[in-house]
Design a binder for these strands. Sequence first.
DNA 1: GGTGCTCCTGCACGTATGTTCATTGACAGT
DNA 2: ACTGTCAATGAACATACGTGCAGGAGCACC
Lengths: 326, 326
Amino acid sequence: MSHADDASPSDRTRDALTAAHLYYMQDLTMDAIAHELHTSRSSVSRLLSHARASGLVDIQIRSPLDAPSRLEKEILDRFHVTAHVVPVPDNASDVDRLERVALSVARILGQYFDSNMTLGVAWGSTMNAISRHVTLKATHNSQIVQLNGAGNMRTTGLAYASEILGRFGTAFGAHVQQFPVPAFFDDPATKQALWRERSVSRLLEIQGRMNVALFGLGSPFSEVTSHVYAGGYLDEADYASLSDAGVVGDVATVFFRADGSTDGIALNERSSGPEFAVLRRTPRRICVVSGSSKLPSLHGALRADLITDLFLDEGTARALLESPLS
Amino acid sequence: MSHADDASPSDRTRDALTAAHLYYMQDLTMDAIAHELHTSRSSVSRLLSHARASGLVDIQIRSPLDAPSRLEKEILDRFHVTAHVVPVPDNASDVDRLERVALSVARILGQYFDSNMTLGVAWGSTMNAISRHVTLKATHNSQIVQLNGAGNMRTTGLAYASEILGRFGTAFGAHVQQFPVPAFFDDPATKQALWRERSVSRLLEIQGRMNVALFGLGSPFSEVTSHVYAGGYLDEADYASLSDAGVVGDVATVFFRADGSTDGIALNERSSGPEFAVLRRTPRRICVVSGSSKLPSLHGALRADLITDLFLDEGTARALLESPLS
DNA sequence: GGTGCTCCTGCACGTATGTTCATTGACAGT
DNA sequence: ACTGTCAATGAACATACGTGCAGGAGCACC
């Protein structure tokens, strides 16, 4: 018996594709598919897993526009951002909350990002969680650009940031543009000088043209400190100066006050993050928040008009709406 | 215990939506969802069924553009239409074939049709099969327009056509425009006269502006006769004239020859179907074929440039490619 | 307040699906 | 040719899922 089985390269993909067709479009059982494909049921199960994991099958949830959740509608009315409330039980732990919001975002992100686009991503525990779940989606001529440096006194941060960026990059088949600078410079002058370097200014230009920005929120003075504040990026003096300036949070290591203002916050002069003016020029600015400890920060970010699309867990959404009018 | 259960109208939808989120975006098990929603696992199963059936959950299969099936690519190269090959085992019966192709089309149709659009549909066994499976998709300000009359010597055909059209209409929440005329007039003059009536010309205008046309193929001289030829629409003389004229098939009761031409086919003067010129002005023209008995007809339709998107079963696709160059 | 009706629920069962594990065959290095 | 590595397979098992069924809540009609 002469085997005609030339296991061509993307042969598995081809099979996965027809299996997916048969399963999702024709409602065949895996057993039946196994029979049609002359293989075992287990293999079909695996093929389908593969199909889902590699983005061949795309499952979307489309709210019948007349019925967005009450919370999402109210947030739109009051803050003028498109909210996506992620259902999470109130008794969930903070890590659960983060993980589940991140998973949801990762699944939906593909709807915002496509070929020929540039995605700016920050780093931090939120971004890290998201990056660990992004689902594959093939794109062409697209790139991921790092929004702010991750170096600090102990490390260049390259490994950490590159890990996050890399996951986005491979998921989308996109080119990754790293930003190998410290999160904060010691001397603003150094930043100015470096910003004039062609290698850096090239990257800044890419940032300036990005189509989608994805970021979490930092909240320096909340119980649960974010990655930035735990990682040795700031010293006591820095911290004090933030407190004095009335800072409530940051986006990509750029700080802001409760009213959304940033003027006169000294640390921003030394930050590697994008000026908010740049961010505001980005058509889609996706902010991911989980856990109500970041509420003050979120209020500031909303005031500062940094957000067009907001992902948050149910509890935080409720808390946001219960807080005083703004 | 005071029940706060005010079973609001679209409360079920709301629940279905969160259940879908939890299931498809967060990969929770139905058990876990049941727990979070304070209900039983079975109810969650039903909620999810509901979510899928009512189009809240949308499952798409996206071929990673670099790997369309070999057949689809070859068809594109040779005939310049986007083919969608539906995998069907070669030993499947003709009804199976039709049913499975129809199911696939029904599932994918939502990707072609949206709000503010007009969909023209023909009738016949293929259309009937598709209509029985169309999945819900909410649209606004859209309409379904009947392409050709269905009346014959025995019936107005209204019930039959309206059944088909109606299913599309309810699936998309679209307004249905029926076409209450016979499939074929006895006297061309009657047709001319009627075509000048405002009620009819209004409908013809709608046809002229449709965004998507959906139709099967008729093949008068194949073993398996289509609905048109079995239903008493044509008499012996008509049949003979078609044969004499070298007709190989029809689209919406408008006939054509193997080379795609229609000139001088007398019956067309009496047909209620849209002139091919009208059809060709329609941006998307989706043709559904199952079973290789319709191959000659398909060839003609391709020559006549009636098709932009072609759905067919695997066997027919192979047969199409094996036939002589065209 | 009954009666019949429909719709919804949770249980229990059988089936469909995911996953572990031992086996196999292909391949590269020696 | 031997051997270790690796990916892929199907059998067997454990789990998750769909659905028929009986009971109960709501509601209209007498």
